[in-house]
Every structure is written in C-alpha cells, then in structure tokens.
Design a protein around this nucleic acid. Structure first.
Length: 887
RNA sequence: GCCCGGAUGGUGGAAUGGUAGACACGCAGGACUUAAAAUCCUGUGGGCAGUAAUGCCUGUGCGGGUUCAAGUCCCGCUCCGGGUACCA
C-alpha cells in the first residue's frame, strides 16, 4: 500500500474544515487553558516563505499536544495587513490597497490551510478591518487620556491628574498645556526623513547608509513635522522589572534591557561664566568632576545662541549648519574624526571653581541626557580623543589599578586614557569642602553625589536610552488617528462612540504638498465643523504598523465583539498568552511596544495581567545554500551544478564554493513551501522543518533532508496500514518498552520545544517495530497518537483505518507506564583512567562493593591491572565504572 | 568597540560532568529487477595492525587548568553569526 499523501491530506483538511474540528469552545469552565500564539504575518505578495511554517508548525504541535492533554486551547491566526508595499502598489497601479491586501490574505490563508495547521479560523482577524482598527483607535484615545504617576509607578486617567496651584492660578490655557505635557500620547515637532525628489517622508529603514533614499537614490533631508509621540520611557522601570516573572530567552531580555539602556549617575549644574545661566549635564561619573577640563554641548542645544560669543558666532553657526546636513549615519559612523568648535564661552567647574571652555561638537547627542556633557579626557575615551585633537588639557585624577609601571606613568601624565577603577588623586578642594583623594570609584561616586545634593547643584539621576516613540507616519495605508485639529489650535479626540474613523477612499495616493500624508488629498473627509460653526481638519498622519500588532492577541480572545474591545470575563480566562513563538527580528521593537501598551491597559484596569506573553520562544532563521566563485562573488543557485560532491558553474565550468546565505531572489535560492507540499506533502514539510535542528538555531534548508522525513512517514504508513503487520494477543516486552520510551521522550520534548529529538525518538520506535515485524492494534493506536501532533494528516488516516470514526485531535494523550521501562540489568561501561575498555552486564540492584569485586576479577580488567597498581576504583551504580591505575 | 550566541564525521545534528557521533542525509557494498527508479538488508569519524574475530592509537575550533572522569565546568585566545553603536 502506497503512501498517497495528496489524497490523505486533502481528505483530512476537508474533514477538519467541514467539522470545525479546531473551533475553540467558549467554555470558560475548564480550568486548564492554553493560549498558543504565533506572531501573525504581514501578508506579502510573495506568499508564504519556508520561514513561516517553522514557527507555525511548532505552535501547532504544541497546541495539538495540549488538546490531547485535556487543555482548552486557543490557537488563532490573523493578518498584520497595514503596510507600505500595498500602498506603493496603489501609487503605481491605482489598485486600492484593500484589494491587494485581500488577495494576499487569501493566498496566505490557502497556503496555511494546506499545511494542516489547527487554527480556529472563526477567530481570524485583520488589522485593516475597520471592525478591528476601531479598537486600535480606542486604545489610542486611552493612551491620550492617561498620565503616568511616577510615585505609584502607574498609569492613571488624566481626570485624576493633580494640577499644581501655580498652574491653576495661571488660567485654563496653562492648565490644558500642563495636562498635555503629561499625557502618554502627545503632539509635537519631530524630525523625520524627507525625500525632496519623491516628495515623501521615509522610514529610517528606507534610508541607505550613504544617506540616500533606497527608492530613488537621491539624498534625503531632515525635516521638522508635527508628529504624535508616545511617552514609553516613563514605563522603563516597569518594562525592566516585568522580566522577572517571564519565561523568555535570556538573550531577548538582555536585548530589551540594552535597548532601554538604564544608566545611573548624576545631574550636575555648571554656572556659565558671564551669563546668568547654568549648563546642566548628566554624567555616570560624577566622581571625575576634578578631571573635567572642558564642556561640550550638542549642536542642537537650546542655550547655544546665548552661550556663543560674538567673536565665535560665525564658526559656530557654520558648524551647526554642517551638522544638520549630516545624516544620523554620518554622525555615528565610528571611523569618523571628531569635530567641534569653541563657543568662546567658559563655565565654572563647581568642585574647584576653575574656568573651563565650552565647545560644540556633534559627538554629543541632543536626545540623550541633557544634550551637554562635562568632558573628562583622562577617564573617558571619547573626551580623550577630542582633547588630543584640539589640544585641550588632560588632567589625570585617578591613580590606576595597573601593574604595568610604564602604562601607569603614561596615564598619570595624561598621555593615556584610563576608564577602570583606581585611587583618586588631585581631587580635593578645601574652600568647597570636598575631598575624595584615596577613595575608589564606588566610594567616590557616592561621596561626590552626596556633596552635590547638599550644595544643591546636582542630584543622583537615572537615565535611559529609550526615547519617546514616534507614533505617526505620513502614509495612507494605516489606522487614521481619531483626532481633529481645530482652526483655533485646539486638538480634540473623537468620542468613543464615533469610532471607527474609517479611511476615506482616495483617487490618488501621492503625498500632499508639504510633506503631508496622502490623506491630505481627502478633501471632504478632512473638513469638519462643530455645532458652533468652528471648522477643523482631521489628522492626516496614520499610525505605524506596530499599532495593530501591539494588541492583536487581545482581540483573538473575543474577535467579533462589536460592543466592547473584548469581554473581560474571557480576557481573564485566556490571558496571559502561554506560549508565543516568532522570529527574533521582533525581539526588541514589537515586543517592547506591545508590553508597553499592555501595561497601560493593565493600569487602567482593562486587562488582568501585567505582562502579555508568559513564555516566549524565537525560532531561528532558515537559510539556504548559495554559491560563490573564487573571488567571493555570489553566483545564482540555478547556475550551480553538482559533480562528485563539488560544485561548478554551469556556464563557465569554474569551481564554486557552497555557502549558506539568507534566501533571496537575487541568489535564486528561495524555497517555496508550495513546491515542497506538492512533492512530499504537508506532513513531510512540517516534519522536516522540525527535524532540521533545534527550533531556536539558524539552519540551512537542504532538499535532500526532506527525503529523510518523507521516507519515515512513508515507512510508517506502509507498516501500520498493513493489516498483516497487526497481531492479536499480548504485546511483546520489547515493543512495550520501546513504545513507552517513545511516549516519554516525545512528551518531554514537546514541553521543551525540542521537536527534532522527539521525531528521532519516533523513528527509533518505527525501526524497532519494523524489525519485530508485528505489533498489536493497541500499539498502532498509541503510536498514532504521539505522531499526530507532528503529522496530523497521516495520523488521522491511520486512526481511521483502526476503525475509529472521530478525529484523533481530542483523543487523550497516552500515559507512560513506567513498569515497562524498568530494567533488570545494566551494561556497565568500564573505563581505565577515563578510557572505555570493555562492557559488562550486571543486575541493576547490585551494590557498589559487589560490582567492584566482580569487575576487578574480570580478565579484561586484570590485563590492565597488570600494567600498574590500582590507585582508585570509582563505581557509579547504573552509570559507569572507572579504574584508576598508576604505574 | 561593547553585549549576547555559536564552533562536534562528507552534511543536518544527538549527548542530566559518566560509553562522543543518537536519528537522518550522503556514500559504499549486497538483495529484488532484463535494467533503472522505488524498496529492503549491511557497513560507514580518522589512523595503524590483523585473513578475520578483534586490538590499539587518535578525535568535539586553538592553548592551559579543575576532576577518578570534560564536547559539557574555569581561565586565556581564534574564527563565525546576531544585536547595538560617540548613550556621557
């Protein structure tokens, strides 16, 4: 009997669809729930990629396994369908993005269904559906109406925001301004990239390394536009502390921690000489104040005009101009020389009252700290580099902890930079009452910080790299903001019952005249008039693609609810997500943004958990073979041919090197899942993707490998579908042992997401069964059950052939019978000085002394004992024996 | 530069500090076949000796160390991958 996967897979896919086998019951009484989620895809025009089924198969196996374990499983799928490609296609062809999106979703849905993934399709969602984005807009309104109470570390409604008395006295306008300054969502000037030739605003990712636009090659510029921003840094501490309870890979937590970039230090005020102004800096090393020999402010610093003296005005102006033209990449390119100019002004170092020059340089960034630094060239590598270039004084104030005397001399002389620990020197001032000489770094930092606070010229301070999140895009194909800008400058948000604010139909999708979103073309839609005749204009920016994906896991809980974002009872039942699998490319942004929104919703009492994703796992990317020639140039895969294990260029005959690279159109090494399904079937594709290696590592696709798992499935079918191989009567001890070993291994491996070794365990059992020749029907049934999460089509077919009328999907998972796993004897490996020499079979119950006695008597041991004297005898029961022989 | 991973046969990979290379691909030999494909069986890290059974040596990127015992733990490197980048 042949393994006709085409027929089998079609039959069971139709069965599942017809019977709604995987519909999640709204039964909230089962205390065992399991929410298994994939990162939902952006449905691109290219269709599914072999990378998609990797994560989807993993979650599918887990979901199917949990159902068999009696869990109520929520396993949904949807589409993150807003995004640029559909909009660009619309600009080129006039096809509305919703049409393109629908087609792409249809393709993805068909492809996913052909893989036999057990999604509850009744819960399908689409971020571009007004019934969905209505609630995205609803959350935005919540963010706008929330402030962060730093004392309680908690978001609260703005209606509860205490207004300071002096603000109250200044009138309504000031009160409004004050409230706006506290909202989690606010509207303000922000820099964006602008391509003057395309007249379009670009995302960071669209700007190439040389500062040109990837679409047209022209240089992009920075432009200030009014933008919506979200104050995510207020949640930095919560986002950091939330990790404690989460089962996430340490690496991902670490990446997010780095992104948040918490650093502790102090803010210090420097009086500016000759002005009634002070310059505040942030430093992580207040202990090095005595070594601060100059200051640097960023070219965008607010006080720059005031600080710059007449004499230096021209050079400073020129420098600022030059800096503004540089792209971020130019400014942060590591190889670049440091640049800067003197402002002509001095500041007073508060510890020793020395006058130190204030410079402007673009190595100081506006967005971090206060945009100004105190420079300590002797103990900071960047300051050192700058000071050397511009001949600024370098004063060593720390005797370094080094043994190398020549290095120490250099450091003390200010010829080399020292950033590690040491004992302070030159660090006391009688008149200012501060002395840290002789202390180490830790003690120095705390002593100086205390002194600064006492003197009221500084304070301990925590800083974060994490910036406010630029939350608007100048695009058509995104969620419209529920916002109106009135003629008198007031900004109001729509009322919740006015949602959704739908995207208007447009004739053309080109951006507006002044860098505005395409929505500025929607004239009728734009204009609004209120009851008193005041006119206003709708917000023309749209939300970024992150918006829809920030909260989609919540909508899956109650996707069709039209009166609420979701039913709180259902939310309480299903949350948090128990297992979340997706690519590591979302390790930082999506997951951080999503956690931020979730925490706000939690603070407002809308969701019941503080964190959305309890257990996270990142699948490794699937790469493919590619070829390169002697010179290292990449050669398209279709030009390579294999002969005797070597690779040659079909056209030139030159030998090629096989390498592993990302799949790409230009390398012609993209593997299409449809082709694999056609040749080997969905079960083979699923199994191969899981068998390739551990789920979390990067691994290359190898067509030959698919054959291995296909062979396994075909042999499984041929063996178990053949009634001649099925016997009545009691099962053999060997089979029972092998079967129980397989159950145990597969179960443990699924829990730990180690599918490759689970599959290997099933292969071992099949090899055993084949060798034995016959097994009982119960054995077939049990094996079919453990196979079913991995190869569900084949399993349903075999299950049905055993006379079962119902799906195997809800059959209870087999229990391991430890009785069958018990062994009477153990084959001891006996090693001499750590090297295996021979094996001997002994009863498992035998004690150490007896084992030692028997082994020492063995002639094979005697042979080695003759070479020296026995120094030690290690016996680890049921593990190993080691003879230590010295000569 | 900094942070985080990784390196095991021809290939993908397996191995609670305790028999390195499970399982699979590939390859070689054999069976079936007129033949091929498919399928089945056997072998397969490298080396040396032996007709053989077998025995010995060697082997998890490199150099040290801890241990009765190290792919696994510690120290110092090399190379590869990912993240991040003048963050004061």
């Amino acid at each position: 009997m042949d393994y006709n996967f085409k027929e089998i897979e079609k039959r069971w896919q139709e069965y599942w669809e017809r019977n709604k086998t995987f519909k999640t019951p709204d039964d909230l009484s089962n205390p065992n729930k399991c929410y298994v989620l994939d990162m939902f895809p952006y449905p691109s025009g290219a269709g599914l990629h072999v990378g998609h089924p990797e994560g989807y198969t993993a979650t599918d196996i887990y979901s199917r396994y949990k159902r068999m374990k009696g869990f109520n499983v929520l396993h949904p799928m949807g589409w993150d369908a807003f995004g640029l490609p559909a909009e660009q296609y619309a600009i080129q062809t006039g096809t509305h993005p919703s049409v393109t999106t629908k087609n792409n979703c249809d393709t993805f849905r068909r492809q996913i269904k052909e893989l036999g993934l057990s999604y509850d399709w009744d819960r399908e969602i689409n971020t571009t559906d007004p019934k969905y984005y209505r609630w995205t807009q609803w959350i935005f309104i919540r963010l706008y109406n929330t402030w962060f109470d730093e004392k309680l570390q908690k978001g609260r409604p703005v209606s509860e925001l205490p207004i300071p008395d002096e603000i109250k006295r200044s009138g309504d306008k000031e009160i409004k301004k004050y409230i706006d300054s506290k909202r989690l969502a606010y509207y303000d000037d922000a820099q964006v990239w602008w391509c003057p030739s395309c007249r379009i605003v670009c995302a960071n990712e669209e700007v190439l390394y040389d500062g040109s636009h990837e679409k047209c090659g022209n240089k992009v510029e920075k432009k200030n536009l009014k933008q919506w921003m979200l104050r995510i840094p207020l949640y930095a501490e919560r986002l950091l502390s939330g990790f404690d309870k989460l089962e996430w890979p340490e690496g991902i937590k670490e990446m997010q921690r780095n992104w948040i970039g918490r650093s502790t230090g102090a803010e210090v005020d420097f009086q500016i000489d000759g002005l009634d102004e002070k310059l505040t800096v942030f430093t992580t090393r207040p202990d090095t104040l005595f070594g601060a020999t100059y200051m640097v402010i960023a070219p965008e610093h607010q006080l720059i005009d005031k600080i710059t003296t007449e004499k230096n005005r021209d050079s400073v102006k020129q420098y600022i101009r030059a800096a503004s033209l540089k792209s971020d990449l130019d400014r942060t390119d590591l190889a670049r020389e440091k640049t800067g100019v003197f402002t002509g002004r001095f500041a007073i170092n508060p510890v020793n009252n020395e006058k130190i020059p204030v410079w402007v340089a673009d190595y100081v960034l506006t967005g971090y700290g206060t945009g100004a630094i105190m420079a300590v060239p002797a103990h900071d590598t960047r300051d050192f580099e700058f000071a050397e270039k511009f001949n600024l004084p370098i004063v060593c104030i720390q005797d370094p902890d080094v043994n190398d005397t020549t290095q120490r001399e250099k450091i003390l002389a200010g010829k080399e930079c020292w950033t590690e620990d040491g004992r302070y020197i030159n660090s006391s001032s009688k008149e200012n009452g501060i002395d840290i000489n002789g202390l180490n770094k830790e003690a120095g930092i705390s002593k100086i910080t205390d002194w600064l606070e006492k003197k009221n010229i500084g304070k301990a301070k925590v800083n974060y790299k994490l910036r406010d999140w630029l939350f608007s895009r100048q695009r058509y194909w995104g969620e419209p903001f529920p916002v109106i800008h009135w003629e008198d400058g007031e900004i109001t948000l729509l009322d919740e019952n006015e949602l959704p604010l739908q995207l208007p139909e447009l004739e053309k999708y080109q951006p507006g005249e002044s860098g505005e979103s395409p929505l500025s073309n929607a004239t009728d839609w734009l204009k609004v008039t209120d009851s008193s005749g005041r006119t206003g204009r709708r917000e023309t920016n749209t939300m970024p693609q992150w918006a829809g994906s920030c909260w989609y896991y919540l909508r899956f809980i109650d996707p069709k609810n039209d009166s609420m974002i979701f039913d709180p009872k259902k939310e309480k039942y299903w949350m948090p997500v128990d297992l979340y699998i997706g690519g590591a490319e979302h390790a930082v942004l999506h997951l951080l943004y999503s956690r931020f929104w979730h925490k706000v919703l939690f603070d407002l009492g809308i969701v019941s958990t503080d964190e959305p994703y309890q257990r996270l796992f990142n699948q490794g990317m699937i790469l493919a073979f590619a070829y390169e020639n002697e010179a290292g140039a990449k050669i398209p895969a279709d030009l390579a041919e294999e002969r005797d294990g070597k690779y040659y260029n079909r056209e030139t005959g030159a030998e090629l090197r096989q390498i592993v690279a990302k799949m790409s159109k230009s390398l012609k090494n993209v593997v299409n899942p449809d082709d694999v399904v056609l040749r080997y079937g969905a079960d083979s594709l699923r199994l191969y993707e899981m068998f390739m290696g551990p789920l979390d590592v990067i691994k290359p696709w190898d067509d030959k490998g698919v054959k291995g798992v296909y062979n396994f499935l075909a042999r499984t079918f041929r063996f178990f579908a053949n009634s001649e191989n099925i016997t009545e009567g009691p099962e053999s001890k060997e089979i029972l042992k092998g079967l129980n070993q397989a159950i145990k291994k597969v179960e443990g491996d699924i829990e730990n997401l180690r599918f490759n070794t689970a599959i290997s365990a099933m292969m071992i059992f099949l090899n055993l069964a084949t060798k034995q020749g016959k097994v009982t029907r119960d054995t077939v049934k049990t094996f079919t059950k453990i196979l079913s999460p991995f190869a569900p089509h084949l399993a349903e077919e075999l299950w049905n052939m055993q006379g079962n009328k119902n799906t195997i999907a809800y059959e209870p998972w087999p229990e391991v019978n430890e009785e069958y796993l018990k062994e009477d004897t153990f084959e001891y490996p006996v090693s001499v000085n750590g090297k295996l020499r021979f094996k001997i079979e002994l009863p498992v119950s035998m004690d150490k002394e007896e084992i030692g006695r028997i082994i020492l008597k063995d002639e094979r041991a005697q042979k080695w004992l003759a070479t020296g004297t026995l120094a030690n005898l290690i016996v680890v029961p049921n593990r190993i024996v080691n003879l230590v022989i010295r000569n």
